[in-house]
C-alpha cells in the first residue's frame, strides 16, 4: 500500500472520478428502469465533482484551482437536486400514463 501510494496526487482522484463517470454512463446506457437511468446521471455528475474538488484542493497541490474547484461542485449538487426532482416527476408521470417505468416502452414519438 505504502510503496505504491506514498503520495496521493490529483491523478488518483481523477481515476476515481473516471471510474464513477464511466459507471454512470454505462448505467444510463444499460438500465431500462427510468429511475436507474436517473441514478446513472447522479453517478456521472458525482464523478465530475470529484475531478473539480481534486483540481481545487490546495492539500494536493499548492498551485491548485482554489475556491472555484469547490464552488462549482456546490452548483452541480444543487442543479442535480433540481434535475432529480424534475426527472422524478417525469418518471412518475410516465408511470401514471403507461403503468411502467421501462424506458424502452416510451416509443410513441417514433416515426
Amino acid at each position: 500500500m505504502c510503496g505504491l501510494l506514498a503520495q496521493i496526487t490529483v491523478s488518483h482522484y481523477l481515476v476515481v472520478g473516471a471510474v464513477l463517470f464511466v459507471t454512470g454512463v454505462l448505467c444510463m446506457a444499460t438500465k431500462r428502469n427510468a429511475l436507474g437511468v436517473l441514478m446513472g446521471i447522479e453517478l456521472l455528475l458525482n464523478g465530475a465533482n470529484v475531478n473539480f474538488v481534486a483540481f481545487g484542493s490546495k492539500l494536493l497541490r499548492a498551485d491548485a484551482l482554489g475556491l472555484d474547484g469547490q464552488l462549482i461542485p456546490l452548483f452541480v449538487i444543487v442543479l442535480a437536486a433540481a434535475e432529480a426532482a424534475v426527472a422524478l416527476a417525469i418518471a412518475l408521470n410516465f408511470y401514471n400514463n403507461h403503468t411502467t417505468v421501462d424506458v424502452d416502452k416510451a416509443e410513441e414519438l417514433k416515426g
Partner: peptide, 19 residues
C-alpha cells in the same frame, strides 16, 4: 469522504446533506 480528504469540507457536507 473523498471530498473531506481533499480538504473540501463544505462540499462534502453539502454532498451528504443534499445529495
Amino acid at each position: 469522504g473523498l471530498f473531506f480528504l481533499a480538504g473540501a469540507e463544505f462540499v462534502g457536507v453539502m454532498q451528504l446533506m443534499i445529495y
